Computed example of a mutant assay.
Amino acid sequence: MTAITDEDNKTWLITGISSGFGKEMAEQLLAAGKTVIGTVRKPESVRDLREQYPDTLDVQLLDVTDVEAVYRVVDDAFHRHGRIDAIVNNAGYGLFGAAEELTDEQVNQILATDLVGSIQVIRTALPHLRKQGSGIIIQISSYGGQVAYPGNSMYHASKFGIEGFVESVAQEVKPFGIRALIVEPGGARTEFRYGSAHVAKLMPEYDGPTHSFLKMLDPANGLAPGDPAKMAARIIESAGKPDTPLHLVLGSAALENTIHRLEDRLAEYRSETEIAKSTDVDE
Rank of each mutant, 00 (worst) to 15 (best):
T2K: 07
A3G: 03
A3H: 00
T5W: 00
D6T: 09
D8V: 06
K10I: 14
L13A: 09
S19F: 12
E24C: 11
A26C: 03
E27H: 07
L29H: 10
A31G: 08
G33R: 04
K34N: 08
S45P: 04
S45N: 10
S45D: 08
V46M: 06
R47T: 15
R50H: 12
L57F: 06
D66H: 09
V70D: 01
V70N: 00
R72M: 04
D75L: 10
D76S: 15
R80F: 02
H81G: 10
G82N: 08
G82T: 11
D85M: 09
I87C: 08
N90T: 07
N90Y: 13
A91S: 11
A91P: 14
A91Q: 07
G92Y: 00
Y93N: 14
G94S: 10
G94Q: 04
F96Q: 01
Q106L: 12
I110P: 13
I110V: 05
D114V: 09
D114N: 12
S118G: 08
I119L: 11
Q120C: 05
Q120T: 01
Q120K: 05
A125H: 05
L126C: 08
L129T: 08
K131D: 15
S134D: 12
S134R: 10
I136Y: 08
I137W: 12
S141N: 07
S142A: 04
G144Y: 04
G145Y: 11
G145D: 05
G145T: 13
Q146M: 15
N152P: 04
M154H: 09
M154E: 11
H156S: 13
A157P: 14
S158V: 09
F160R: 00
F165H: 11
V166S: 13
F176V: 03
I178H: 06
R179M: 04
L181F: 02
V183Y: 01
E184V: 15
G186A: 03
G187T: 07
E191P: 09
F192S: 07
F192R: 00
Y194P: 00
A197F: 01
V199I: 10
D207C: 05
F213E: 00
M216F: 12
A220W: 11
G226V: 13
A232Q: 06
A232E: 03
A232T: 12
A233V: 02
I235Y: 00
A239K: 06
G240P: 02
D243M: 14
T244R: 02
H247V: 11
L248E: 06
V249T: 15
G251E: 02
S252A: 01
A253V: 15
E256C: 07
T258P: 00
I259G: 10
D264W: 00
E272A: 04
T273D: 07
E274T: 13
I275F: 03
S278E: 06
V281E: 06
D282K: 12
